[in-house]
């Protein structure tokens, strides 16, 4: 059993910007928008300009979730199934057309770009991991966050999951509930939320919303436990 407390949380999606709006959404969810980007006012303009929409969403949620005094001392886990697929497709289009690659766009195309930009913007020198696990990305990112808490129990973990729909070129491969969103959880060891491999007979919930938001709905307004599947495994959260 791997137990953690969620001390703070923040989420961002087009049209859903504060905790009240999200709590209302958790009780009565409606389809998420796919357009628009957060203001990211907490990041200096020079740095903000280098952030893709995905990174802006991830960092908006991240900075709303940590206090000024915590932002330098948290360890971080950033998870995204697709990463910055839109930017990466556009880089590959440039390459296909024989155009010179922008060095800045290339260095920001790595999966850990949100993690790197967060560390720069927050002045955070702590350990950080960036996770991807196909349709199991959220449970695996949560697990890596628990792992980070185990390795570095002296500081909270900031876990951020963000994704957006695949770009039009890859639209035929969209296989998940639509919507662009970011969810940030500030986690500390021990407390209220248990997490473990699902037991026989515990069935994964139907996926009406992205996993991260299914989790948020369960945690803010749901029942005693919830199970989500991840690659070949399944994971159960329950309340103490």
């Amino acid at each position: 059993m791997l137990t953690a407390s969620i001390e703070r949380w923040a989420a961002w999606a087009p049209g859903l910007e504060n905790a009240d709006e999200w709590d209302r959404w958790c009780r009565a969810p409606a389809p998420l928008g796919a357009d628009g980007a957060p203001p990211l006012a907490s990041v200096p303009p020079l740095l903000r300009r280098r952030c893709s929409r995905l990174t802006r969403m991830a960092l908006e949620a991240a900075f709303r979730c940590v206090s000024d005094e915590d932002m330098g001392r948290v360890t971080t886990v950033f998870a995204s199934r697709h990463g910055d697929a839109a930017s990466n497709v556009s880089l590959l289009e440039s390459l296909a057309r024989g155009e010179p690659l922008s060095p800045t766009r290339f260095s920001h195309s790595v999966h850990n770009a949100p993690a790197g930009l967060f560390s720069i913007a927050a002045g955070n020198r702590r350990p950080s991991a960036s996770v991807a696990a196909a349709r199991g990305t959220f449970p695996c990112g949560y697990l890596e966050s628990i792992s980070m808490l185990t390795r570095h129990p002296e500081s909270p973990v900031l876990f951020v999951m963000a994704d957006e729909p695949l770009p039009p070129t890859l639209a035929a491969f969209r296989d998940e509930p639509p919507g662009a969103y970011a969810l940030a959880l500030l986690m500390v060891p021990g407390g209220e939320v248990d997490f473990r491999p699902a037991m026989a007979g515990e069935r994964a919930s139907r996926r009406e919303w992205p996993d991260a938001l299914e989790f948020l709905r369960w945690w803010r307004a749901g029942g005693p436990s919830m199970t989500l599947s991840a690659v070949a495994s399944a994971w159960t959260w329950s309340r103490r």
Binding site: S80, H111, A133, A134, C140, G141, V231, A232, S233
Partner: peptide, 24 residues
């Protein structure tokens, strides 16, 4: 997709524990 080797290798080897990719 960024995590592609995780589901592939887990399926190939028959691993049913945690399986994910780290990309830093």
């Amino acid at each position: 997709e960024p995590g592609s080797p995780a589901p592939f290798l887990a399926a190939y080897l028959g691993i049913a524990g945690p399986a994910y990719a780290l990309s830093t």
